[in-house]
Amino acid sequence: MENERKLTIARAMAEATAQEMRIDPSVFVMGEDIAELGGVFGNTRGLLEEFGKERVRDTPISETGFIGAAVGAAQDGMKPVVELMFVDFFGVCFDAIYNLMAKNTYFSGGKFNVPMVLMTSTGGGYSDAGQHSQCLYGSFAHLPGMKVVSPSNAYDAKGLMTAALRDPNPVIYMYHKGLQGMGWLGTEKGAIVHVPEESYEVEIGKAAIARAGRDVTIVSIAQGVHHGLKAADKLVEQGISAEVVDLRSLVPLDRDTIRASVAKTGRLIVVDEDYHSYGVSGEIIATVTESNMADLKAAPKRIAYPDVPIPFARVMEQHCLPNADKIVAAARDMCGAPVPA
């Protein structure tokens, strides 16, 4: 591509934040290790140097305090961007998130808005064990009042961040560690894509067709989209054409795109790195079965994280995680293709 400008998700997030900070003085950033270090996962790199300590603040390890403070600042005319380093830590501060941040617009009858962005890292696969590897996006999406986004590539990462910063509502911005382009967490090449220099928005609540196909719809988000794309590559060699839907947002959920895709293919696989039960995979399947039963040529399948805490040992964790091979096997089964020897 001419003038190609490939960025990692980490850099795309930082670029979107910097561009917004240049034009909107109410935007400021706080969190642990986000200033001097530029974020453990690189997504605030360069902000301290450009905007200084007033607007880019390292916090004490006091999540209830500073996320609660972000709610108060947001209600008072600021646009805080706060970081919860790993989503797994939400246990120490969830009250500020779901009882204040997510509800105050409603409780106040719209007299107070809470325009803030809560960035948090998700995902496993690198043996960081059960308090540093979860996705948990279903838990946030379940609770009303906050938008939830999670990009699969740097283009969407920048556009979703810009949209989140301009949204008058609280947005949970969940970035998958395996897609961050940090090297020390592995590198998913498919996440590093061309990113335009100028500012732009990716609409929150709009899914993307990451790959068009005929026979089966694979719905996922973040890392799961890459598993889906790899599976689609393998499936095409086996005569099965898979369509991959990248949700990009869980709240609002683009149910129309999911339904339209399944109406075309007749088959649905949901790939979900979050826990199996009571979560995103069930919600996607219900979205289809509530309205499109007649479209289905096979019972929908979900490839999700089993309902167990995430183990440390590599062989155990890898056994539990979704991957392309599991998707291929599910798709072949649904399409009535013989299991290859």
Partner: peptide, 8 residues
């Protein structure tokens, strides 16, 4: 049995 690792 390998479920916890160094932090657990």
């Amino acid at each position: 049995g390998g479920r916890g690792g160094h932090m657990h």
